[in-house]
Amino acid sequence: MRPLSDTLLRLTALREAGAAIGTRSGSQRLTELTGFGGNPGALRAFAYVPERLPRSAPLVVVLHGCTQTASEYDLGAGWSALAEQAGFALLFPEQVRGNNFNLCFNWYEPGDSRRGKGEAASVRQMTEAMIVAHGLDRRRVFVTGLSAGGAMASVMLATYPEVFAGGAVIAGLPFGAAASVPEAFDRMRGYGGPSEAALATAIRKASPHKGPWPSVSVWHGSADYTVSPSNGEAVLAQWRGVHGLDPDPSHTEIEAGHTRRTWRDAKGRALLEHNLVAGMGHGVPLKPDGSAGGGVSGAYMLDVGLASTRAIAAGWGLIDEAEIPLAAKLARARAPGAIGLPPARKPTAKPTLPNVSAIGTVIEDALRKAGLMK
């Protein structure tokens, strides 16, 4: 356990950062989603639906980091710009200060990080509402997040593995690593934590699901002093244990300071990957310039010449690999049974976000059938 003074200093730094977020601007593309269920975690929800959304399109759930908002994260990472281009829907859960002053998702709180509880249940409810409202493909639902959002992505993959085909944890932590604020700070610094076997067991006990399990892509900077890179290794080990994969990777690639290790099953499917970006600090790796890049550099959005958003989307089969640069191609990871987007169809009228008065009953019925609402 680190000294109390260390924890207090870190809390103060986060509080100061949180107080400054009102000075930043974000994406103007997102629309608020309401009426998505009981919302036990008291979160807000925002969504982006392209005008030309194909039938049975994929859904990506995107979780921001501490001190960020949904629109800020979208602007920085470039998810909605890519969704418009490729034709998939986006859901952005958003934390509120009433839950966490620094706008961190409470990934370490048992009441918010368990199946059917708090914030995890709210994210599940809003995910179901999006699927029902827009006729999205349940086989192609994915989740990603940065830092506390990355840790919350770990929570969603562990507690609702039947919902997500794959996930991408960026500068995050493994599920079940902490159960209090002091433990959370220790784990972020790389101190203590459950064993690899205990971490894998935590996922198996987090839901009644027995497999198949989601594919997982882990991203971390080697110079991350906010969330130690050892946490990326812990996420890797946790899912390696769940998938029953060997400690040694099936393949390793190194180029331009980016090391990618991949673990494949007996059928050659990439189930797990670990991306370590040499010299990068805490944040999302970006390549803002050029047609094969995207996003806007800034706080926690780091221009390192690596378009991770596109690489993650390509790994899930959401965009063609030819659309990403060579360095980012090293980060591709096909999810088990990943399917490309369906052929383009004649565009219909612009889709809108759920009108509660019109389709609320449909959504509520679906939530009840899924056991997400009484």
Rank of each mutant, 00 (worst) to 15 (best):
E273V: 14
H274F: 12
H274M: 10
G279E: 06
M280P: 03
H282S: 02
L286H: 08
P288G: 00
D289M: 11
A292S: 15
A292F: 06
V296C: 00
G298R: 00
A299I: 12
A299T: 12
A299Y: 09
Y300R: 12
D303Q: 03
V304G: 04
L306R: 03
L306N: 03
S308C: 10
T309G: 11
A311V: 08
I312T: 14
A313G: 12
A314V: 10
W316N: 10
D320E: 15
D320M: 04
D320T: 13
A322V: 13
A322Y: 10
I324Q: 02
A328F: 03
K329N: 05
K329S: 11
K329P: 05
L330C: 06
A331P: 04
R334A: 15
P336Q: 00
P336R: 01
P336F: 03
G337A: 07
G337C: 10
I339N: 00
I339V: 14
G340E: 12
P342K: 14
P343Y: 07
A349I: 01
A349T: 12
A349M: 03
K350W: 00
P351C: 03
L353S: 10
P354V: 06
P354Y: 04
P354D: 02
P354T: 05
V356H: 08
S357M: 07
A358D: 08
I359A: 04
I359G: 03
G360K: 02
V362S: 09
I363N: 02
D365W: 00
